[in-house]
Design a protein around this nucleic acid. Structure first.
Lengths: 334, 334
DNA sequence: ACTAACATCGAAAACGATTTCGAAATCGTT
DNA sequence: AACGATTTCGAAATCGTTTTCGATGTTAGT
């Protein structure tokens, strides 16, 4: 068990060496003889010494820590993303600390340049609107930064090809002999959480229609709030305009689920009366047989972390952008 | 904009005072004349000085930070809880850093006594099994600690009266003239996430039955995994054993939602064929008309934080336990 | 045997803040 | 005027670590 108050001095005395020797052993310097190295390590063990992080980061100016900003919507997406980032960071001796942007109060606190999140070597922003953060909110970011699931020319970014994903989903639906509709999230661009992904998905949907020789008709698109209710209302709107069978692309699984629920209530059979494709591949999607777009989240997390680590090592490195491709998973609903 | 590299020395020189005077101004010492105080503050402003957190915490041995451990299930519950804790901490000049227990790898890393989360003044564990954490996993916690939504005699705790809540929900259902069943989460006690809340809810259900003069029959209880599928399967089991109308207490809203979905699919009307009460009051519960038990989460967060702050100030303070009461919200499903 | 090259170690400086304690200045009272 | 009390300020010590650089010892080559 590690006792507090044990310093490197104590270890040095116990091992009969200088403090600098202990430090070198702990930091893998190469000018240490194997047997003294052994002795120091044994003393460290016996005394239960652990490095004083505050002293270390004070001296080095580094914290071996990255702060992750993200929305506090607890979807599987962030679970997987954070796990991937955390694992990759840990493999390089970095720690990750999470800072969900819960509400305006918390955001206001992050405007202070000495707020906790900036007590790190680098920052990762996930699914957050960079214009809002850096221009409107004026977050004082002067640390190496990478964006995941959001794009900005001035930063390293890892994004999903949302447009292409929506395109693929829509093309899949257009193969079926029925009118094809979309339920799209109405993004509000005056919030930190509007990363533009839903706009991209809309574009992909419209592009697919055009390439299929169809005009983009207003009444084939229903916009919805990002909520179960929003999805239900939008689905009802579509049913007011057209009768089954019909195809529906929902720009996220949350909305798709509302369609599933409401269709069951109305005795409409999925895959026959309604063909449905969602986006996200939430964990429950497989169980409900929902066709949807799967995103390579682990890859995104690893890439983003690698970008950050590279920038920590070389601040002048050329800015990089990487776009990963989502994959269509066909299940019963389509 | 705050420039890096500006130290307290620079400020002192700029304001023509000693460094200790600057430090005193920044830390609200009282032996500072109003006009020198002004002058220092102006220099701080002009130079864009911000304190070097590493140097400060190195010197003081304090970080002004609390680490929050929690499961990474992104329910509204944790959103509200973390917000409440964060606000209360901020009011006392503390920062909060989040550490979701994502997976076994991450947990393993937290066994190191010098892991990032312990680089804090205190710890808050939310909804985590203390026996597992401190006994099985042997987390090296030597910092002031409080538990929320979990009980342990040796720590300050804030808990919900889960038994009482389930009792109230069940009593409410027993007023209706139909057989009353329960869908209960089958908790696994060999994980860090088994905080015992579902066991308590089961007890409350059984107590209500007994007090109502009914024996606790095995086939009136269906256990389920904590998932949509689990809820659906359990609901099916109940329907195999009894025909509507019937009353169902679901020990969490997630399971209740499965019942809602499946009932719609089977053309069973909630509030008539099935009377249903959940537990948690998730944000979608109101929209779907789900009767459920609402928990005073904000109060829990504030209480837990106050407990922690008190213990930071006085390590020898008597251990405190507080139990908050959930409230029955009656909507259409019951 | 002499020198050059190399291996190993430790003394000491430095990082930027806080805190102690004594000095200096001011004030109030007689 | 003299004295003590009070207010205000700053010099210096201190926290635990890393890193530099010189000292010392050892080996190799001629």
């Amino acid at each position: 068990m590690s006792k507090a108050g044990i310093t490197i001095q104590d270890v040095a005395k116990h091992a009969s060496v200088g403090v600098s020797t202990v430090s070198k052993v702990l930091n893998d310097y190469r000018d240490i003889a194997p047997d003294t190295r052994e002795r120091v390590l044994k003393s460290v063990e016996e005394l239960g010494y652990t490095v004083n992080r505050a002293a270390r980061s004070f001296r080095t100016g580094k914290t071996q820590t990255a702060s992750i900003f993200m929305p506090m919507v607890g979807t599987e997406f962030y679970d997987r993303l954070v796990t991937a980032i955390d694992n990759e960071l840990a493999a390089h001796d970095y720690d990750a600390a999470l800072f969900p942007l819960l509400n305006s109060q918390r955001l206001a606190r992050y405007k202070a340049p000495d707020a906790l999140p900036y007590h790190a070597d680098g920052l990762i922003f996930a699914s957050l609107n960079p214009d809002w953060l850096f221009t409107d909110a004026r977050l004082p970011v002067s640390l190496p930064t990478v964006l995941v699931d959001a794009y900005h020319a001035n930063y390293d970014t890892v994004t999903v090809d949302n447009s292409g994903g929506a395109y693929a989903a829509t093309m899949h639906l257009l193969e079926r002999p029925a009118d094809t509709f979309a339920i799209l999230v109405q993004e509000r661009y005056d919030t930190p959480f509007a990363s533009g992904v839903f706009l991209e998905r809309r574009k992909g949907f419209e592009r697919a229609l055009r390439e299929h020789g169809l005009s983009v008709q207003k009444d084939h698109i229903a916009t919805a709030e990002f909520s179960s209710d929003g999805g239900r209302i939008a689905f009802r709107q579509i049913l007011d305009r057209a009768k089954p069978p019909l195809n529906i692309f929902a720009s996220c699984d949350l909305l798709a689920r509302s369609v599933l629920d409401e269709a069951a209530r109305l005795d409409l059979k999925l895959g026959r009366d309604i063909r449905l494709v969602g986006f996200d591949d939430q964990p429950w999607a497989a169980g409900l047989g929902l066709s949807t777009m799967h995103q390579p989240v682990e890859q995104m997390g690893k890439l983003a972390t690698d970008f950050l680590l590279k920038r920590l090592a070389d601040a002048e490195h050329e800015i990089r952008h990487h776009e990963v491709k989502p994959e269509l998973i066909v299940r019963e609903t389509s």
